[in-house]
Amino acid sequence: MRLVLLTYCLLLSLFSFGISNSKFHEGNDAYSHQEYALALEKYSQLVSEGYHSAELYYNLGNTHYQLSEIGKAIWSYEKALEIDPSFEDARFNLDFVNMLTVDQIDQDKGGLGSWFKGIFFSQSINFWAYMSALMSILLATSLVLFFRSRQRKLKNLSMLLGSVFGLLLLFTLLTAHFHKGYIQDQSNGIIIVESTAVRLSPLEEAQLSFELHEGSKVQIIGSNAEWVEVEVNENTGWMLKEDLWEI
């Protein structure tokens, strides 16, 4: 009985995420009336309040695009895709906006990794956590059934179910762990200024290594207070932190 109650509570909390925020809709209204600056303000407020969602970042990306802020638009689409890798519209708009960038960056699209992400990371952020809780309950039930039952058939069945649920528990735990890590990890960045210099060392007067333009995606290797070390097309260098937004 207690277990049932607990599950119920969990499911209830899952639905509570669906409660919408009025600022999001205010932003949408502003966007549909082509008041992009207002829309940007509304969406940005939500982001600064610590809210995230694939849809929020997607709409924010569209707003940035309408305001001709290509770098920030790309950043937003990347954020949206980080939360939901199977977000088709965000992928489309990202590809579209990427065509407007100047730098040709090698990007790893496709492959087993993105396939895995597309399948397992496109659910709600707590999906796998709930699934693992459910698996734990099912595993516990099968264990109890196994020790209580006297019939051989029932014992075998519960043993089989128990091992299946055990494996699923392990799998869901790991996936939940990696999903959270994937969303929280910030190892990439997007250039948000028109152009920025990448230098050989983190100093204003250091020698220029190469230049990057708005919208280019870079990998972040390290950072200090003002500078961030980035890697692009297997070249590394330091650039100002303020020129880049982390994904």
């Binding site: 909390s13 995420f17 669906g18 919408s20 925020n21 999001f24 809709h25 949408n28 966007y31 549909s32 939500l46 610590g50 809210y51 995230h52 969602s53 694939a54 849809e55 929020l56 997607y58 709409n59 569209n62 707003t63 695009y65 519209d89 489309f92 708009n93 579209f96 906006v97 709600s124 952020i125 707590n126 796998w128 956590a129 709930y130 693992s132 809780a133 939940a176 762990h177 999903h179 959270k180 929280q184």
Partner: peptide
């Protein structure tokens, strides 16, 4: 042109909404 914004549910969450890793979890 780019595709239009999404106006349905916002699915908003905060970083501390992560169930995984919390004590309750």
């Amino acid at each position: 042109d780019i595709r239009y914004i999404h106006q349905g549910s916002d699915n908003l969450f905060k970083k501390d909404d992560f169930f995984y890793g919390s004590l309750l979890y």
